[in-house]
Amino acid sequence: MVQVSVTVDGQRRTDEVEPRLLLVHYLRERLGKVGTPVGCDTSNCGACTVHLDGKSVKSCSVLAVQADGSEITTIEGLADGEWHPMQTAFKECHALQCGYCTPGMIMAAVDLLNNNPDPSEDEIRAGLEGNLCRCTGYHNIVKAVQSAASQPASVGGVQ
């Protein structure tokens, strides 16, 4: 067992974990942060994307011990009282259907805008290349990111 201390969505935690414990299982099964789901074994799908020290990572491909001393933000901690504009944009633009990819997609999209506040459509698509969605065909996800980028405070309609 190894000790890890992390701050998850603003809360400090210290736990003893097996070295092999995946960060996503630590979040889901030790901390009850089930908002972050698991979609694959090979780090392709991105459903488990969280922010580790402010940057997007796939929490199924990080060991909990590697996150020791880090600050983690999950979809559950993204809203700070009010929804993050990206969450609003996803709803307004119908950028989700079943919603399974949505937490990861939103976390990846927030990271994308952190690095590039005014992306082109191609840059948005490239920036989300690590996140798979099986429902939307990405059309409305692109629109949601454009919408969030254009109006960071209040997000407009679909068209």
Binding site: R28, E29, G32, K33, V34, G35, T36, P37, V38, T74, I75, E76, L78, A79, W83, Q87, F90, K91, E92, H94, L96, G99, Y100, T102, P103, I106
Partner: peptide
């Protein structure tokens, strides 16, 4: 806009694997 989305965009979901 969908009623379903408020939970889904905030991670307050109820996937089967969440159940303990």
């Amino acid at each position: 806009r969908r009623k379903e989305d408020a939970r889904l965009v905030t991670g307050r979901t109820n996937w089967t694997d969440n159940i303990v």
